[in-house]
Amino acid sequence: MDKTFNTLDDFLGTHFIYTYDNGWEYEWYAKNDHTVDYRIHGGMFAGRWVKDQEANIVMLVPGIYKVAWTEPTGTDVALDFVPNEKKLNGTIFFPKWVQKHPEITVTFQNEHIDVMKAAREKYETYPKLVVPEFAHITYIGSAGQNNEDVISEAPYKELPNDIRAGKYFDKSYKRLNK
């Protein structure tokens, strides 16, 4: 997709796939001005996916955006997107329990929030594992805001490649093969 990002409206409704320098691959969607959806395709949390995560989304300067949120797991996330350069910097602050028991989080979070909250109370939180990483954006799609088809099923091995190859969404950004 050839698009120049200048305003916050340019960013909202955009669907990204990116790979951190440590090899973790993520798929992320700026659903609207206060909500994000995402799937994790690589790394210790591969298989995790989340819809309707409340987030703070701002434009720092034209074409540079900061997104931050706290998950029900107690994990804090801060992402700086520079889509015109196809770059991203992310810092994730994982509670100790998430480091020790990542398998608890590898699920569709929305259906297991009670499990996340129980684990957060049962296990140790500190010290947190801080993971600061740069990432290269490998896909940018214009999905439009509040498109429920963008992140609508569990991640599977070839999903990022299917999206990049144009095999997952039709021209109006609706999921194929539902």
Rank of each mutant, 00 (worst) to 15 (best):
F93T: 12
I104V: 13
V115L: 08
N56H: 13
F93S: 12
Y38H: 04
E103L: 02
I64E: 12
I92T: 00
K51E: 07
D37Y: 03
R39D: 15
T70Q: 02
G47M: 12
R120Q: 03
N84Y: 11
M59P: 04
Y123L: 10
Q53A: 09
E54N: 12
I40V: 11
K66V: 14
R39M: 14
A46L: 11
W97Y: 09
G63K: 09
V58G: 05
Y65C: 03
T35P: 05
F81A: 06
H112L: 03
Y38F: 13
V61D: 03
F81S: 09
L60M: 11
H34P: 07
E71I: 03
K87W: 11
P62H: 05
E103K: 10
V58E: 09
L88V: 13
D80K: 12
I92Y: 02
D114K: 04
H34F: 14
T75N: 08
E111D: 05
E85N: 15
P62T: 09
T70M: 03
G42F: 10
V82L: 12
V77S: 07
G90M: 10
T107E: 03
A78N: 14
N110Y: 04
H112A: 02
D37T: 08
K66I: 12
N56Y: 07
P62F: 08
W97K: 01
G74K: 06
T70D: 02
A78R: 08
I113K: 00
V58N: 11
Q109W: 00
M59E: 01
F81I: 04
N84W: 15
M44H: 06
D52S: 12
V67A: 07
E85T: 15
V98H: 10
G42P: 11
M59R: 02
W49V: 00
H101N: 12
H101V: 11
K122V: 01
H41P: 09
L79A: 06
E85A: 15
D80I: 14
F94H: 03
A46F: 12
V61G: 01
V115W: 04
T105R: 06
K86R: 15
N89L: 13
P95R: 13
E103V: 01
E103N: 04
D76I: 08
I92C: 13
N56P: 11
E121S: 04
I40T: 13
V67T: 05
E121P: 06
Q53F: 07
A55E: 04
F81V: 09
K86H: 14
E85H: 14
T75M: 06
D80R: 13
N110C: 10
W69D: 10
I104R: 05
H34W: 11
I92L: 06
Q109P: 00
H112N: 10
Y65A: 03
I104C: 07
I40R: 10
Q99W: 09
R48H: 07
R48G: 04
E121K: 06
W49Q: 07
G47H: 01
K122T: 00
T73K: 01
P83D: 12
I57F: 02
G42T: 10
F81G: 08
G63W: 01
W69G: 05
